[in-house]
Write a protein that binds this DNA or RNA. Structure first.
Lengths: 122, 122
DNA sequence: GTAAATGCATAAGAAAGTAATGTATATTTG
DNA sequence: CAAATATACATTACTTTCTTATGCATTTAC
């Protein structure tokens, strides 16, 4: 028995991104430079056409961990009375960040090849 | 501080496949028909060039869950004195299986596009 | 003025992995 | 032929990483 109707409006495909979330954040920061948490979650949703709706309980711990690992640095700024915590790639962690992004990119290629074989080349 | 040397021979990229494992099993069964657990793990390793090394603690619970969900049916056969538990896609679950595979395929395409933008089209 | 959006964060619990252990048969290798 | 490795199933304790819920505060839209 399935209960779908009440959830239709908030369906996403978060379960597919398990394990790849922090690397997606690294890629977004590499592309856009300096970004704050809320901005990252909105951008992630935008570039995945709504498929990836990062919850706060996933977003902030992931960012904190990347910072603790030395891959990100932070600066807090005030927008009016509201604080924003900006993240950017740490210079000392750029090698590791690039490595993780490359690894995920290769994974994406392999997975696509496995699941979407090109007609006439199989 | 990193400890890599002693682990080099067994490195894999399992962490990337989190959340996609059971759908990869469905795709393998769709492609190859009837397979048993151990065979599935070897085939998965083969098609991913060693990147995906499914542990038994992941493999068997995943298969049991797919069976409980009605997506797979099983038949036990003896190979000599050793038993093999063969899995195949259940007829009643083919729609759901196809849906999950399609969803993962779309995810793979999106992720690849995000991470590997084509030069001259960005 | 009230709801929704913006902005940070943490805590309890669930899901899905890893590593280790257990049991047994078959094959390869020195 | 003895021992190591491979085949074949499974479970358990633990870890990581997510979801859901909660909390606090400011700003914008209706």
């Amino acid at each position: 028995m399935y209960i779908w109707a009440s959830q239709l409006t908030i369906m996403n495909k978060n379960h597919l991104y398990k394990g790849t979330l922090s690397t997606i954040l690294l890629k977004l920061l590499e592309e856009h430079g300096r970004m704050y948490g809320y901005e990252l979650s909105k951008k992630a949703k935008e570039v995945t056409q709504g498929d990836l709706d990062i919850t706060e309980g996933a977003l902030y711990p992931a960012l904190h961990k990347l910072e603790a690992e030395g891959l990100l640095t932070t600066e807090i700024e005030m927008a009016g009375k509201r604080q924003r915590k900006y993240y950017k790639l740490a210079e000392k962690g750029e090698g590791e960040a690039r490595k993780r992004i490359d690894e995920l990119a290769e994974y994406a290629r392999n997975l696509q090849q496995f699941l979407n074989p090109q007609p006439g080349h199989g």
